[in-house]
Amino acid sequence: MRRSHEPIAWSLFGAGGMLLAFFGPGLVLTTALLPWLAAGDPQAAHAAIGALLAHPLGKVLVLACIALPLFHTLHRIYHGLHDLHLQAPRLPMQLLCYGGATLLSAISAWWLLLV
């Protein structure tokens, strides 16, 4: 029998769910307020975010905040479409959801390396 991809998908889904539960609301509130928080000195705010993105640990944290929610949400959407009886061939849907999350994560990692 062919091995299932489900354990990998579920691990990333679980990690994303934990991250979103423990840091999601705080992160959304932070970026929602960001234009006003940075209004006093936008250049300084840009420099502060640049310092975060320049640090290796900062890159890892930012990548986690983008990649894990991508895997989490696309896993839920993949199974949610099944729940809604929106039938689609399994393999293309898996490629679209998990492949899409992988591709977008890789692009984000590339951008983080450019900073």
Binding site: G24, T31, C65, I66, P69, L70, H72, T73, I77, I107
Partner: peptide, 13 residues
């Protein structure tokens, strides 16, 4: 909840 959170992740990107 995955739908707005996916859009939010894309906004971060």
């Amino acid at each position: 909840t995955a739908l707005p959170l996916l859009l939010y992740a894309l906004l971060l990107m």
